[in-house]
């Protein structure tokens, strides 16, 4: 079956620049969409979208070793081969164990169990307008967040029907494992940045990753009037890199106020509503214009 939708992934590199605020605005302004919150360690989009949970799934993140007391003859081979220093005094520290299974295989007495662990849950939900929303929760302290992101996305995308035109992914911060997983099969990346030296630095690193993955991107500058000098520097960088500025949103204390009230900013502030509408128009054009071009950043 031919893919009928475009997938937009919202990322930032630095946290707290406004990924979720922008994603919730996009979620209310687009129709025929599926929304996925891929920040599984700090999922927040559901707090604003207030979805109704339709179905719940268990996530088995990976295996962990544990030594069976009684069977262990304390030979110490497991401790000597573990590259993660996870075994001491014939006990496995679950926070050090990376789940490689080497000890389980090497144990001469079959005294190590190696079992799948329930490390998270993910949810399929309905939004008020009838579209689908997916989010997940990694159990605190668990590993393998990238794998949960992949499973969440696969579940969401496998349920898509032909009426869906847009898949919007609210991504995690950083440029590591969960970000890579969020970017699988993306059509376009929306970078939410802000005019601070830190956020600019982080966006540049993110763009470096997008180059390696051959993905196209556009930028939204949030809190755009916070620092004129840095804002210009970001615009200049974007120009040199041939990345379009999709929108600029001013710093406004009302944004954090809306957040506290659990409302989407476009419902409480008309300027934001208009600016986001323009941004989405531009975004759609950007994605369509380049329909036939393969890779261009």
């Amino acid at each position: 079956m031919c893919k009928t939708y475009k997938q937009i992934v919202v990322l930032s590199g630095k946290g707290g620049t406004g990924k979720t605020t922008i994603s919730s605005a996009i979620a209310s302004l687009l129709s025929n969409k599926v929304i996925i919150d891929c920040d599984v360690e700090a999922a927040n989009l559901h707090l604003t979208l207030k979805p109704r949970v339709e179905n719940k799934y268990d996530f088995y993140g990976g295996k962990k070793a544990s030594i069976k007391q009684g069977k262990c003859i304390e030979c110490g081979i497991c401790e000597s081969i573990c590259n993660f220093n996870a075994i001491k005094n014939f006990q496995v520290n679950p926070y050090e164990c990376e789940g490689c299974g080497f000890c389980y295989r090497v144990c001469p007495e079959d005294a190590i169990s190696f079992e799948l662990q329930l490390t998270g849950r993910y949810y399929k939900c309905d939004l008020h307008d009838g579209s689908k929303f997916y989010y997940a929760r990694l159990e605190p302290g668990e590993t393998n967040s990238g794998k949960l992101v992949s499973e969440l996305k696969e579940k969401a995308i496998s349920n898509i029907n032909e009426s869906v035109k847009w898949v919007v992914v609210d991504g995690p911060p950083g440029i590591g494992c969960p970000v890579n997983a969020s970017l699988a099969s993306a059509d376009y990346v929306l970078i939410v940045t802000e005019p601070s030296k830190s956020a600019m630095n982080d966006s540049i690193r993110l763009i470096g990753l997008l180059r390696i993955l051959k993905l196209r991107a556009g930028i939204i500058i949030n809190k755009s009037d916070l620092n004129e000098e840095v804002c210009k520097a970001i615009e200049h960088y974007a120009f040199l890199e041939n990345i379009p500025i999709i929108g600029r949103l001013p710093f406004d204390e009302q944004v954090i106020q809306s957040l506290r009230e659990g409302k989407s900013i476009i419902d409480t502030n008309e300027l934001y509503y208009l600016k986001m509408k323009d941004a989405i128009k531009l975004l759609k054009n950007e994605i369509r214009d380049h329909k036939n071009k393969l890779v261009e950043i």
Binding site: G15, G16, T20, E41, A42, N44, L47, Y95, L138, P140, G141, E142, T143, N144, S145, P172, P173, G174, G176, P178, I256, L259, R260, G262
Partner: peptide
């Protein structure tokens, strides 16, 4: 520390004597 509650954050927190958690006055 890096943000989040997964392996990178744990690696830092578990190696410390005390952790300062920074949050903000929002539901998020």
């Amino acid at each position: 520390s890096p943000p989040g509650t997964s392996c990178p954050m744990i690696e830092v927190a578990k190696n410390s004597d005390y952790c300062v958690l920074v949050t903000e006055s929002t539901p998020y």
